[in-house]
């Protein structure tokens, strides 16, 4: 994989064909990981019985079918959606802020939307509309705060915004902790677990809401992927090269907030992935967002499915929070890559 962004490719324009070809390959990898994740689990279900079920020769009423289609499949799809959204959000935030350390979690956008969701739960709102809407509102509030506080003095200086994000993150996490400490007992456990990320609550009704939202977000963000390339080279430079910088920044921040809000409402806070997957994708595929966006999104989906499979099987029949796995698996791998390829986000 490391040679995909090789020298000859870098010296030629990127073609839609190359984007499609690599996306198809990454898509196959994603399907492979998802398939593997279907087979692995506390209940032993053979590959043959899965194929039988998919081909319709098995009976839908049997226990294997119930576990696969009512429990595992929605969970796998949710993990894929969440990994997709967090990685895509990370790529776009890094480009907009021209800072390789930006990601929805560090910037406090995730905890902002978690704050919104917790408020919704405390107020007794339902999961189908109330929680995701409040979660989106929380994400939007965070981005607005970042803009207001960060833009006051130095015209959107990215380090200032990053620092603001860290502070906002701490603040919202404190509020969430407060709610959890004071919440009624039976709701406490689910909220606590959700704070570390929980993908077990996948329902087809929720997925049918998240799926189209992500697809829409991807379409809009991809339309601006060429402009994002130029913005990473500096906002003034981007404007001089014909980008309507302010408009595109607003659109992208809004769309990413929506995406993060929807995803956090159903999965809680999962850190690290929005930082790591974009980095890995940059190292392998280079910095062109027209290629980077599909690669990081699909790769992030595969990564979180793999991580969640580990989370539900490692100490089976108990479960670990998936955030523990993403950090535990990702951190050493990331250090290894940084040391091997240099930390300066250059081509190999």
């Amino acid at each position: 994989m490391g040679r995909l962004a090789d020298r000859t490719a870098a010296a030629k324009p990127l073609t839609p064909y190359r984007v499609l070809r690599l996306s198809a390959m990454m898509g196959l990898l994603l399907l492979g990981v998802a398939g593997l994740s279907m087979v692995i689990g506390t209940a032993d279900i053979s590959l043959k019985s899965i194929l039988d079920l998919f081909l319709g020769s098995g009976t839908s009423g049997d226990p294997a079918g119930l576990i696969l289609f009512r429990i595992r499949l929605p969970r796998i799809i949710l993990a894929g959606f969440v990994g997709f959204a967090l990685s895509l959000g990370g790529v776009v935030f890094q480009a907009l802020l021209r800072n390789p350390l930006a990601d929805p979690y560090i910037l406090g956008v995730s905890s902002g939307s978690a704050f919104g969701a917790v408020v919704a739960i405390v107020l007794g709102f339902g999961f189908s509309i109330g929680v995701p809407v409040m979660s989106f509102a929380g994400a939007l509030l965070t981005v607005w705060l970042l803009m207001q506080l960060g833009a006051r003095r130095m015209g959107m200086e990215s380090t200032t915004i990053l620092l603001m994000g860290v502070i906002i993150n701490a603040f919202f996490t404190a509020i969430i902790m407060f709610f959890i400490s004071t919440a009624a007992d039976e709701r406490l456990h689910s909220m606590l677990f959700w704070l570390y990320g929980d993908l077990s609550q996948g329902r087809y009704t929720h997925l049918s809401l998240i799926g189209p939202a992500l697809l829409g977000a991807l379409a809009i963000l991809y339309r601006h992927s060429g402009a994002l390339n130029l913005i990473t080279a500096g906002e003034e430079t981007a404007a001089q090269l014909g980008v309507e910088v302010d408009r595109i920044k607003k659109i992208c921040f809004l769309v990413v907030s929506l995406m993060i809000g929807v995803v956090v409402a159903f999965s809680g806070l999962i850190g690290f992935i929005g930082l790591m997957v974009p980095h890995l994708a940059r190292m392998v595929f280079g910095s062109d967002h027209r290629l980077l966006i599909p690669m990081a999104s699909l790769g992030g989906a595969a990564f979180l499915i793999a991580a969640d499979t580990l989370a539900r099987t490692l100490i089976s029949p108990s479960e670990l929070p998936v955030g523990v796995i993403t950090a535990f698996m990702g951190a050493p791998f990331f250090v290894f890559l940084l040391r091997g390829k240099g930390s300066r986000w250059r081509r190999p």
Binding site: A95, N229, T232, A233, T237, G286, D288, R344, W345
Partner: peptide
């Protein structure tokens, strides 16, 4: 002022 925070090849630039 021209600093590239991410790795771009000369051709890409």
């Amino acid at each position: 002022e021209n600093h590239f925070r991410f790795a771009f090849s000369v051709m890409e630039v």
